[in-house]
Nucleic acid binder design. Structure first.
Lengths: 166, 166
DNA sequence: TTGGAAAGTCAACAAGGCTGACGTAACTTC
DNA sequence: GAAGTTACGTCAGCCTTGTTGACTTTCCAA
């Protein structure tokens, strides 16, 4: 028992083997995480990229295109392809900014809300099952580790998303 | 305070808002998770798919192609493309099976070990920092939630990977 | 000896990233 | 008011990594 911090905690959770297991857990869990929405979307003309756009527009209604760009971390050409189809299909509405007319403020239409809801219901159902199985303590730890794993800039994005429901 | 289980735990961690935060945490954290290897690989002729192959061959030396297929969850055509370049470039060796000569047993060459090492060092460094920042309790919770999030079949794959280092 | 599994390969395609170049409207600054 | 910057959109072309389908070779096992 040599791996002890000055304060007496075991450092065994930092072994390469433990870290590798964590890496694999992320890999397999992420597959599960996206599986349900992917299943819903296949067959429709949409993919994961559309899901992400819907999610963040739902989350921050009225967000601008460049805002969304920085959250999603893709190029405007990539996002535009996705956004165009969503707007054409009447799931998303782009309103010209009132203060700054260059900006487009993005909102979900009723139809957009509906699909977002369907996707997020599926994803939340899995999340809820996992949370319930693991318990509140585990969930707190889960969130802590994920947060620590983010790039600092992304962490700020993450924390900036409106927090409530408590 | 109505959200209490019969055993008295709060269920506030199961609100839609909390679940959404968890979903976003997964999204942002996964970006960080892959960022370092991606950076190393850009410029080389390899991508994330090559990294995954290297990882699991390292993890289970002598694994067969079909074994790897089921772990990675892609088609043999996809995997083959990746594997071919890795073999051509002398990072991976495919040994014909002794018992069953149809099977190819995959091993990393010295060169393959080297790249795998470089990629995994980077990824583990981030993981280690996150683990250290969050602490052992949080790490345990992190692993529990991720495991509960996996599809049952993937969970078996995950648990089947040799466990040690404790 | 034959059926079927394991592996490999060719071709074609799609999603979703990327870069670069260009255009336009609108805001900001000098 | 002119010049520069920002926000957005779009065209064209490319790459990676996934897909399906069809086909072959090898070879184990019943």
């Amino acid at each position: 028992m040599a791996d002890q911090t000055p304060s007496g905690e075991s450092l065994l959770f930092l072994t390469d083997e433990q870290l590798r297991k964590g890496i694999e857990a992320m890999f397999f869990a992420y597959r599960g995480f996206t599986a349900d929405p992917d299943r819903i979307l296949e067959g429709m003309d949409y993919g994961r990229a559309h899901h992400r756009a819907l999610h963040f527009i739902h989350r921050s209604p009225g967000t601008t295109v460049s805002n969304l760009l920085s959250v999603l971390g893709v190029t405007k050409q990539s996002l535009n392809r996705v956004l165009r189809t969503l707007i054409e299909d009447g799931l998303v509405e782009a309103r010209v900014g009132r203060r700054d007319k260059r900006e487009r403020h993005l909102h979900l239409t009723a139809k957009g809300q509906e699909l977002e809801r369907e996707l997020s219901d599926a994803q939340r159902a899995r999340m809820r099952a996992a949370y319930r199985a693991a318990g509140p303590q585990a969930v707190a730890g889960f969130r802590q580790v994920l947060e620590a794993m983010m790039d600092p800039e992304l962490r700020r994005q993450y924390q900036g998303l409106k927090e409530n429901g408590a």
